[in-house]
């Protein structure tokens, strides 16, 4: 059978042997270069000690830099997707509005953000946010006045209180950035609802707002959830970019660990592996869930 459409019986062909030989050769060449040319000394425990550490005072294991960074990354991503969804829903509704003005507004927001490099966007916005919006929000003063009880809550929700200002500015950048992508998801979700739904709702005398709120949006949201879940995974990856504006998430702290231990190979491999595990597990889980939902609806 020659077309790739059909069923293939697994068997070992000449191509397999060539590929396996190539892969082995590449790995061997790497090992040779690392060992004999660079004289690199692997020292995994030197870096893995930054995953978790034993706290003598509290008598238990606590997160060290790398796990701390992963938690910050996850906090950033979850808050980020929440805010991006809010922005995206508003902008997505603007995108299909009857009036030209909201359409112009949301269209230019989406196009502007999708066509500028994320890095350049972060640098411009961070500069703007840290100098203009952060003093306006007054978060740092608020954290300083907070009681110990609310500080504990803040620590769970946002990470270390003293880094809160930094965290929030990274979060605003990310949410504005991802909002543009969520806008398109929401728009596609609303436009995927069949026209008949709209006509039926109008023919029973609902107003435009009621049609949107009671008929279209509930159905659209259902369709929006799977791509939004995918967007969360994208956000976890995109969030690494805020390390460049010194938000202390996984990529930033992995860089710190690589510098202090002088073991860049291990540090970056572990950081990449941590991202991989989180994103891979989430993507498998989401696709399982989606399958189950699809079966349940049938």
């Amino acid at each position: 059978m020659i077309s790739p459409h059909g069923y293939r019986r697994p068997r070992v062909g000449w191509l397999d042997l060539v590929i396996i030989a190539l892969a082995v050769a590449v790995v061997a060449y790497f090992a040779y270069r690392v060992d004999s040319v660079l004289h690199y000394r692997w020292n995994w425990p030197r870096v893995t000690q930054f995953l978790v550490r034993w706290d003598d005072e509290r008598q238990r294991w606590v997160a060290n830099l790398l796990v701390e960074g992963l938690l910050t990354t996850l906090r950033l991503s979850i808050w980020g997707i929440i805010f991006a969804t809010v922005i995206g829903t508003i902008m997505g509704l603007c995108r299909i509005s009857r009036k030209l003005f909201p359409r112009l507004l949301s269209r230019s927001y989406v196009e502007l953000i999708r066509n500028i490099p994320p890095l350049v966007f972060m640098f411009i916005f961070y500069f703007f946010i840290s100098s203009q919006i952060m003093p306006l929000l007054g978060i740092e003063a608020w954290v300083r006045r907070a009681s110990p009880g609310s500080l504990a809550v803040i620590e769970v929700l946002f990470g270390q209180p003293r880094l809160m200002g930094n965290f929030v500015s990274g979060l605003i950048c990310l949410a504005l950035f991802e909002g543009a992508y969520v806008t398109e998801i929401v728009r596609a979700g609303i436009q995927s609802i069949p026209k008949g739904q709209w006509e039926a709702a109008q023919s029973v005398g609902l107003s435009r707002l009621q049609v949107m709120r009671d008929v279209i949006l509930p159905q659209a949201l259902q369709r929006v959830v799977p791509p939004l879940a995918g967007q969360l995974i994208t956000l976890i990856k995109t969030s690494s970019i805020v390390s460049l504006i010194s938000v202390q998430e996984l990529t930033f702290l992995a860089g710190e660990v690589a510098n202090t231990t002088a073991k860049p190979f291990e540090a970056w491999i572990i950081a990449a592996a941590m991202y991989f595990v989180v994103c891979f597990v989430l993507s498998v889980a989401f696709s399982r869930l989606e399958q189950r939902l699809a079966e349940a609806q049938r």
Binding site: T251, G255, W268, F276, C279
Partner: peptide, 10 residues
């Protein structure tokens, strides 16, 4: 499943 920035550092 890994960020571009981390790939770049790798």
């Amino acid at each position: 499943n890994t960020p571009l920035l981390v790939q770049l550092f790798l």
